[in-house]
């Protein structure tokens, strides 16, 4: 099937993803229930404000856009291909994706510099943070490389990678399209699985508790002890 020895492709593209998602789900749920207290990031803005802005803002806006792009492509590959059938539209999409990738990278670099140089910030940085930074660097660089040298990423992602991902999701894995991919793309895919597997152990879990109910809850929160409830609803 492929040129790789020992079913390497099968391990990396079939076993690893299931393993990664399994770990992700089980550990996240366990941690949410058993170690609720730790289920957050460890903000360091309090200790350093300026560089925090220049790192965190580009990084988050960049990565959220990029991830959303991947998800959209996964959900509506046909529409993406249709959109790309027009060269101008293709260029717009590719350039936009590249810019947001770059933004993420720039943000990540400032984050890493900040973590490495500000003495107070070093105190709140763990080894797991450094492992994450390493994984992100590999991930973003391989993504940017792919965007530049294996054009057009958005099209073949929709055409080849998405069917593979769906085949995983539907428990009928088909790695035919993936084994033929350039090794940089493979690195990107494997990197993603590793991040997903490591995710629930790290500060990344904060992404799972993004505070959505806030947008529609009432401003004030009152808790009653026992079952005695407020007869009338509280203010605003």
């Amino acid at each position: 099937m492929s040129g790789s020895p020992f079913f390497l492709d099968e391990i990396l593209f079939i076993v690893l993803p299931y393993l990664a998602f399994g770990i992700f789900l089980l550990v996240s749920i366990r941690r949410y229930i058993r170690e609720t207290f730790t289920f957050s990031s460890l903000s360091s803005q309090f200790l350093e404000n300026q560089q925090h802005f220049w790192g965190l803002v580009p990084f988050h806006y960049g990565i959220i856009t990029i991830l959303t792009g991947h998800v959209i492509g996964f959900l509506i590959p046909r529409e993406i291909l249709l959109w790309n059938s027009h060269p101008l539209r293709l260029y717009v999409l590719e350039i936009a994706a590249f810019i947001f990738g770059l933004l993420t990278m720039i943000g990540l670099i400032s984050i890493i510099i900040r973590r490495a140089t500000v003495p107070k910030i070093k105190m709140v940085t763990s080894w797991a943070d450094w492992v994450l930074f390493g994984m992100f660097v590999v991930q973003i660089l391989s993504g940017l490389y792919t965007a530049v040298f294996h054009s057009w990423g958005s099209s073949w992602y929709a055409a080849a990678a998405v069917p593979y991902l769906w085949s995983l999701l539907t428990l009928n894995p088909d790695i035919g399209a993936i084994t033929a991919m350039p090794w940089m793309v493979k690195l990107h895919i494997v990197g993603a699985y590793l991040i997903i597997a490591f995710f629930p152990f790290t500060r990344l879990v904060h992404a799972l508790v993004v505070p959505n109910p806030y947008l529609w809850r009432k401003p004030q929160v009152v808790r009653w002890y026992g079952i005695r409830k407020s007869p009338a609803r509280p203010l605003h």
Binding site: S43, V209, V221, R228
Partner: peptide
């Protein structure tokens, strides 16, 4: 509080932060 971690106790009005619900959004 985006997480709804802070609350006022209904019985005595003391304002507290639920350390488990607080996600450090500040």
């Amino acid at each position: 509080c985006p997480s709804g971690a802070l609350y006022k106790r209904g019985e005595d009005g003391i304002v507290l932060i639920d350390q488990k619900r607080c996600r450090g959004w500040r």
